[in-house]
Structure formats: C-alpha cells, structure tokens
Amino acid sequence: MTPPPCPDQALLVQAELDGELSVAGSAALQVHLEGCAGCRALQAGLLGLSARVRLAGPRHAAPDRLRAMLAARAVPPPRVTGRLMRRPALAFGAGAALAALVALALLPGPVAPLEDQAVAGHIRALQPGHLTDVPSSDRHTVRPWFDGRIDYAPPVRDFAGAGFPLVGGRLDYLGGRPVAALVYRRDRHLIDLYVWPAEGETTPAARARNGYAVVTWRDAGMAFLAVSDLEAAQLLEFARLWRSGP
C-alpha cells in the first residue's frame, strides 16, 4: 500500500509537471521526492492521468465552414493584380514542399509489429499503477533493479539537466520476450525507452505510429526504441542525447 502524498507538496508536484516551477523549486522538490514514496506515487499518477486525458479528451477541430466564413469576413476577396497573386502562390508552394518533407520524414513505414507493440505497451503503462515497477530518478537504483529479472544489464542514464529526467523503470514485453523499459519525461510528456541486446549500429530514425512518435536506433550492443506523444523532433533530440553519452 503506497502512503498518501504530503498535503503541502501536492501543488508543487503538480506545478513541476506543468513546467511552472523554478529551477531551484524543482531541485528542492526532487530532494523531497527521493525520500517520499507517497509524493513519488502522486507524481506517477498525475503523469499517467495527464497522458490519458490527452488521449481520452479529443481536441475538437473547428468545422471547415466556420473557418471559411470567418476568413472571408476578415479578408474580403481582394481585387488582385497579377503580381500580388504570385506571392501567396509562392508561399503556398513553399509550405506544401515543407509539408511534403515533414510527411516524408514521418511517413508511416512498413508495418512493424514491434513498434505497434511498443505503442500499445506505452498506452497500457498509462493506467494507474502500471507506469513504473521501480519509481526512481536515481539511475543507481533503477539499473540494479533489473538484475535477475532479465538476462542483460540495460544502460540507464539520466538527462534531468537537459530536460529529460528519469522517472523509473519497469519490466515490459516486446516481441514475446521480457525487456527493460526506462521511463523518462519531458514536462508532462512521458517517454518509454525500450532497451534490449542487439547487434549492429544504426542512427536514430523517427516514425509516426497512430499519433505517437517512435524513434529507433542501435548502438553499443543494444537496440533502443523510444515511444512518446512528444513531437518527433523532440524525441530525436532525446535519442541524440543518449548517443552522445552520459
């Protein structure tokens, strides 16, 4: 049974997740969290809830007819000269080219069951109490926890200084085998990083799967698969931090 969170810390735990705490405030809270299982459980609960709310509460888009009507009212169809015509067309062309580039970079690749499983595992872990088996921002606590639970020692790093603090670890299943899942976060966005032994070396590549970004790479005898609802660029930044060492 987890102890209850401290009443005087709840708003601070929340503010830290919302990115509203100063650096000094965050550091002080971190010290408290290390010694308080109740507040750590609250933090994990709020993280999962935040992700589930974003999943369950769809962000409704405005109807197209409303957008068209307002645009027409704001800017009545102008008397255009040939020269004026060209500029928006050019801008549109550039925008379309950019969109095509982004689409290329995020093209849903050939269906990779492993990535689907990873996304599903990520969503499963958002349920209350499933996020971490070992909730700790201390890599010296997280790493030994995997001893005896899996037959390899996953590398564990913390990037709190770069805005990707370690939240903990858990045992998950990918491709029919138990693998280490390391949990990180960027503000309120959770990142699951699955790590298992594999040969070869590849540079991080991003893919979109069902609205989630998935980044995979191989390095130093391990395969890495990161899943998050972060933007792909931020998840790639996370991958680059990992590869550039502790």
């Binding site: 769809p58 069951p113 599903a120 299943y173 069902n210």
Partner: peptide
C-alpha cells in the same frame, strides 16, 4: 480513432 492495434490484446 486513435486506438492503436495491440497484438497482445
């Protein structure tokens, strides 16, 4: 709409 397929499910 956003429900990903979970082969384990």
């Amino acid at each position: 709409v956003n429900e990903p397929a979970d082969p384990a499910d």
